[in-house]
C-alpha cells in the first residue's frame, strides 16, 4: 500500500504541471489577447495596457511567464484583481461557501444515488425499479439550470418551502435546494451505475459460492454484491468532483450564491482573464488532489489495484 501511495503521488506531479500549463497556455498563448479581451474591444490606453502586461509578466517570454505563474501559485500568490484586491483573499472569501455547497451536493448525490441504485438493482423489473429508472433518465436529460429554475419556482416561489436565493451567510437551509440541484445529474448517473453493477454482480460465481456456504441473503447481499458493486461507484464519485465544480458555476448563478462559481462568472463578464485562470487553477489542483484521494480509497476497496 505504501509503495502504491507514493507511486500515485509521483504520478500526480506531471498531471499538476500539465493541467496548469494547459490552462495557462490557453489563455496567454492562444491568438486571443487577454488584455485586449479586458477592454472588450474598446480602445485601450497604451500606458494602462503596458502596466497590466507587466503586472502579469505578459511582457516576458511565455515559458518564463508560466514558470513565474507556477512559482507564485505555489506561494498562493495570484496577484491582484482589477479592483486591486488580492486574488487569493477574494477567492478565500468565496471558497468556504462553494465547498459547503459542493460537499452538500456530494453527500446528497452519493447517499440518494447509491440508495436508489441499490433499491432498483436488487429488485430489477419491479415497478419502483421502473420509476427510479425513468426519474434518473429525466434528471440526466434536463439541464441543471432548467431543473434549478423549476425547483426554485415551485419550492421557493410558489410553495415557499425553502429560500429562493441564498443569503450572504449561505446557511444550510439556503444551500439545501442548490445542493440538490447541483447533485441531481450525478445522482442520476450514480443510480444507473450502481443499478447495473448490482445487476451484474448478482449473478457472479462468487456470489453463488457465498450462498452455497449457507450465508443468509442479507450477508451475501451486503458482503459480496454491494461491496463489489461500490468499487466503480467510488471511482465515479471521484471523477464527479470535477463536474461538481463546473456545475457550481451554474447553480451559484441561479441561486445567487456568493461562491467561487459566481466569482468566476463575474470575472468572465468583466473579462478579467487572470482571475479566471487563478480560480480554475486552484479548482483543478483540488480536483487532482481529490482524484488522488479517491484512487487511494479505490485501492483500499479493491486489493487488485494495490499491486
Amino acid at each position: 500500500m505504501g509503495k502504491y501511495f507514493w507511486h500515485r503521488v509521483l504520478q500526480a506531479i506531471p498531471v499538476v504541471i500539465g493541467t496548469t500549463f494547459i490552462i495557462y497556455a490557453l489563455v496567454f498563448l492562444l491568438p486571443g489577447d487577454p488584455v485586449k479581451a479586458m477592454f472588450r474591444g474598446k480602445a485601450a490606453n497604451p500606458a494602462v495596457e503596458a502596466q497590466i502586461r507587466s503586472q502579469y509578466n505578459l511582457d516576458k517570454p511565455f515559458i518564463v511567464q508560466y514558470l513565474l505563474f507556477l512559482w507564485n501559485a505555489l506561494h498562493l500568490d495570484f496577484g491582484m484583481t482589477f479592483s486591486q484586491q488580492s486574488v487569493i483573499d477574494t477567492i478565500g472569501r468565496a471558497f468556504p461557501v462553494t465547498i459547503k455547497l459542493a460537499l452538500m451536493a456530494f453527500v446528497f448525490e452519493a447517499v440518494f444515488g447509491i440508495l436508489l441504485g441499490i433499491l432498483a438493482g436488487l429488485h430489477k423489473g419491479t415497478w419502483y425499479d421502473g420509476v427510479i429508472l425513468v426519474l434518473s433518465l429525466l434528471l440526466i436529460s434536463v439541464p441543471t439550470f432548467v431543473t434549478g429554475y423549476l425547483l426554485q419556482y415551485f419550492v421557493g416561489v410558489k410553495w415557499g418551502l425553502l429560500p429562493v436565493t441564498a443569503s450572504a451567510a449561505a446557511t444550510f437551509n439556503d444551500l439545501l435546494m442548490p445542493a440538490m440541484v447541483l447533485g441531481s445529474v450525478s445522482m442520476a448517473s450514480i443510480i444507473r451505475l450502481s443499478r447495473s453493477e448490482i445487476d451484474t454482480n448478482k449473478t457472479a460465481d462468487y456470489v453463488r459460492t457465498a450462498r452455497a456456504k449457507g450465508m443468509s441473503n442479507y450477508s451475501v447481499t451486503v458482503r459480496h454484491i454491494l461491496r463489489n458493486s461500490m468499487i466503480p461507484v467510488v471511482t465515479y464519485l471521484g471523477q464527479d468532483i470535477g463536474a461538481l465544480m463546473g456545475g457550481a458555476m451554474i447553480t451559484e448563478r441561479i441561486f445567487n450564491i456568493q461562491g467561487v462559481g459566481n466569482l468566476t462568472y463575474q470575472a468572465i463578464l468583466r473579462g478579467e482573464a487572470p482571475l479566471v485562470v487563478s480560480v480554475v487553477t486552484i479548482l483543478v489542483l483540488i480536483f487532482v488532489v481529490c482524484n488522488l484521494l479517491v484512487d487511494l480509497l479505490y485501492a483500499a476497496l479493491d486489493p487488485r489495484i494495490r499491486y
Partner: peptide, 10 residues
C-alpha cells in the same frame, strides 16, 4: 485532470 466545464469556460 481538467474538469470539462472549467476547461471550456477558460
Amino acid at each position: 485532470g481538467i474538469p470539462f466545464l472549467l476547461g471550456a469556460i477558460v
